[in-house]
Design a protein around this nucleic acid. Structure first.
Length: 574
RNA sequence: GGACUCGUAGCCUAGCCUGGAGAGGGCACCGGCCUUCUAAGCCGGCGAUCCCGGGUUCAAAUCCCGGCGAGUCCA
């Protein structure tokens, strides 16, 4: 049984409405919705939908319906008709008791659904290992990691996976660079780490590959790898591993980690990529042109400039798409839900992949979340062109700014404590500023925006958490409390938000909108700040004090859970 | 040429799936609040043709159609 106090309330309201409908002989109408304006109560039912059947005006219906319903219900103190709506008012005492009780009992478990017995595989980041993580890639990592956390909380057994593309042209171009370019001809690396050392070879090699002779050599490497040349395979793996070390270390600092790295060359080595091509060919789904195989997508509703989806090149080598197809089949064998976080440039390809999976008569469907690009004022991010903002630099800068802020207000803390807080604030700010924006929305990267520490940001939430922790640290603990002593509008608002938290997580997970959690967190923290101003806790009379302490305790638990769900560290002080 | 995504105050953004009560938040700007639990905060003010046009509906930022602009893709 999963705790969800808000659902309990809406069900109680629905029960009243059902009773009223029955008495009046009205058809059943769903969805009581929540209110934006508190002066109208807590939950409202618009009655316009009844108008036709009742042959009456909404204000009349509202009046009759309110009259016909039982005057109160579970968690509902009363209701009244107001110009076409029935407004329900929650009975704050019992509802607060129910909500706070649920939070205090479940603690970290509050907002977490019971295991559903299903395995979810979340693939994210999966960039070509050709250079350090830049902010565009990091958007994928941050949103992917947050989605994984959300699915975990909605009951899935989650695996986080990174598809390492170690058999594509890009990586082989890098390998060519290592064989043919000299380090002493290059600028020193921008930072420490193998990824920063190697990316210079990649950039120069890509430039060199403009020359057809060089491109020809790279093609040769691609062919040798596909033909099973062990030496090439081993060397690619070595380079890729070095690069991945740097990439994973950058992400680790943001508390982003993977359960599994899937090495792309595996589907070549074990023959599964070739087998997929054969299966499609045997099924009669492939066409051929000069030895290259493709699926004609035109019958499947694709009408672009070129509706052919190629699986192999003329020389028989596979394309990225083919390997991805084989990889998906592998994923399906290991999971009940396979979700991939992709750049929006993969949209069409993903649809084509889905068609191919259908042709293969695979039952499970691939799911994807698409992200719009992050760009700089001077253009798209490009590792190849060196037009990037590296994640490491962004994080360093954020932590540095956070450190200045801590130093300015907390001279009492030790250097070490200030450093710890700055790290959590800086990293939190970076994650939050990225995750708060809806995935489909394009981001124009601006330093001041990415580094912002005020307003709708992680430190705003962390600060509210620290304030709550501060109060609780000074209180002796929680004995008996009576929720009926909560009465102030801000207390009511806070209880309602705490009650809604489990539903918000579920909704964010189902709709793949992690930004909703981030924005809900802001609302929660903002409401707490108002409560903090208006309702003194420690100095209050005994009964309100106990009730408010329970509220603050519950708030700290819920905001803490929310922050962890966003990969942001809650801070006891800041 | 075709397809998909986005368009909400000077700037950023929520709401759109599932249509309902003066379109919610943040930044910037102006004015207030630290002798009481941390001012990374709070309160007030300024600021919106919800891209444009049509349609559906008692009711449209939200649904449908047609434009326009931006982004992305079509070995």
């Amino acid at each position: 049984m999963t705790e969800d106090p808000w659902r309990d309330l809406t069900e109680a309201v629905a029960a009243l409405v059902r009773a009223g409908e029955e008495t009046l002989g009205l058809p059943r109408v769903d969805v009581p919705f929540e209110l934006s304006a508190p002066q109208f109560g807590d939950i409202a039912l618009p009655t316009h939908a009844y108008a036709k059947a009742a042959r009456a005006s909404p204000p009349e219906i509202a009046a009759r319906l309110s009259e016909a319903m039982p005057p109160a219900g579970n968690y509902v103190s009363h209701h009244e008709p107001v110009s076409g709506y029935v407004n329900f008012h929650l009975d704050l005492g019992p509802f607060a008791e129910h909500t706070l009780g649920a939070v205090l009992q479940s603690v970290e478990g509050y907002g977490r659904a019971a295991p559903n017995g299903l395995r979810a595989l979340v693939e994210h980041t999966s960039v070509n290992p050709t250079g350090p993580v830049h902010v565009g890639r990091a958007r994928n990592s941050i949103i992917g990691d947050t989605l994984a956390r959300l699915l975990d909380r909605t009951g899935y057994e989650v695996t986080r996976e990174f598809l390492v593309n170690d058999s594509g042209r890009q990586v082989l171009t890098l390998l060519w660079g290592l064989d043919n370019l000299r380090e002493k001809d290059m600028e020193p690396p921008a930072r420490e780490g193998e990824d920063y050392r190697l990316v210079r070879f990649y950039q120069k090699a890509m430039a060199a590959a403009e020359d057809p002779a060089v491109a020809e050599e790279v093609d040769g490497l691609v062919r040798r790898l596909e033909d099973g040349d062990e030496e090439i395979r081993r060397r690619v793996r070595t380079v890729t591993k070095q690069m991945m070390d740097g990439i994973l270390r950058s992400l680790e600092r943001l508390d982003i980690a993977f359960d599994n790295l899937f090495w792309d060359d595996q589907v070549l080595a074990d023959g599964s990529a070739q087998r997929v091509v054969e299966r499609l060919r045997d099924g009669g789904h492939l066409e051929e042109e000069d030895g290259a195989f493709y699926i004609d997508m035109a019958p499947h509703g694709f009408a672009g400039r070129n509706p052919r989806w190629f699986l192999t090149r003329r020389d028989g080598t596979t394309l990225y798409t083919t390997r991805d197809l084989a990889y998906h089949l592998d994923k399906f064998g290991r999971s009940d839900k396979a979700l991939t976080v992709l750049g929006e440039d993969h949209r069409l390809e993903f649809q084509q992949l889905s068609v191919a999976l259908r042709l293969l008569e695979v039952e499970q469907k691939a799911e994807a979340v698409f992200l719009a690009f992050v760009s700089l004022p001077e253009g798209r991010l490009s590792t190849r062109a060196g037009r990037v903002v590296n994640l490491d630099d962004l994080v360093d800068e954020a932590v540095e700014r956070a450190l200045l802020a801590v130093k300015a207000r907390r001279e009492d803390l030790s250097e070490e404590e200030m450093g710890r807080i700055a790290e959590a604030v800086g990293i939190g700010a970076v994650r939050y500023n990225i995750v708060k924006v809806q995935p489909e929305k394009r981001i124009l990267f601006r330093w001041d925006q990415a580094l912002s520490l005020e307003g709708q940001t992680a430190p705003f939430l962390q600060y509210a958490y620290a304030r709550a922790a501060g109060i609780l640290g000074k209180a002796a603990g929680l004995d008996g409390w009576d929720a009926r002593f909560l009465a102030h509008p801000h207390e009511r608002a806070l209880v309602k938000l705490l009650a809604r938290y489990p539903g918000v997580l579920r909704d964010a997970a189902e709709r793949r909108r992690p930004n909703r959690v981030a924005l809900f967190g802001h609302e929660l923290a903002m409401t707490f700040n108002q409560f903090y101003r208006d309702s003194p806790v420690l100095q209050a009379e005994e009964d309100p004090r106990a009730a408010r302490l329970a509220l603050v305790t519950a708030f700290r638990i819920v905001l803490g859970n929310l922050l962890v769900c966003l990969g942001i560290q809650p801070l006891e002080e800041m």
